[in-house]
Nucleic acid binder design. Sequence first.
DNA 1: CGCCAGGTGCTGA
DNA 2: TCAGCACATGGC
Length: 280
Amino acid sequence: MFEVAAPDFSLQASLSSGQTFRWHAHDGWFYGFIGPSVVKVRQEDGRLLYESSDPALTPDQLRRYFALDLDLPGILSSINVDIQVHGAIRRHRGLRVLRQDGWETLASFICASFNNIKRIEGMISRLCAAFGEPVALNGFRGFSFPQPEAVAGASERRLRSLGLGYRAPYLKATARLVADGTLPVAHLRHVDYDAAKRSLLGCDGVGDKVADCVALFGFEKYEAFPIDVWMERAMRYYFRHRRMTRARLHAYARRHFGPYAGYAQQYLYHDLRTARERSS
DNA sequence: CGCCAGGTGCTGA
DNA sequence: TCAGCACATGGC
């Protein structure tokens, strides 16, 4: 058992806010993957307790994944520019944007388009069972996320049999671009938002919204502001009567919230979704 | 059953 | 640049 200090952090909010699809609550722990390593993790007060089957997993890697090195209070004060986001921050303080694997994030959000989170989780789970490697930690058994080569080599029919629907050919084509190096995922972390988004938009099944999710959750582009149906609803607060295209909402939000607009988006998104649960 | 879901690609103005 | 349409599937 190990632990790291985790001030200004909510593990629950971070893992349940629709940015990741592969953590499982079990026996009071969350089980998941950080890179190739299986991890179980639990929050107690201002610290994170964790255990991994991989002795090579360092505290720094854990801190990095959960973005504990970032100054969250500073980020939140920079986006705390109106009453709506203020309420979301108050209700979910501690939510952090995770630093997930780029390829996994890209593949996951191709599956996420025009879909619901429950089904996305099922699709990704079946994808891992079909093409990933089996792993275990204590009583937990799971599968690693497949390599791009494995997905690129699968038949469209096989991918459809996992329930991917019309996304199957998109995912296969994008896996091919990653596998053959046409889309240099390792490189995208080091280029700016515009360049990263342009590259991502070259993939089948990747439009503005998916590209922004992947840039934000997989490549640390914090100015990315993904707009889905929930964010369109959230943005009604800013434009009560005028009909706005997603492109205009996107431009406004980036200007309004600044370099950490992606954090504002994640707080608003999570707040709206949990508001529905609270009221039903 | 009908509606909805972290939209995209294509077509035609 | 924008609107309108088809698209697979399962949760609710």
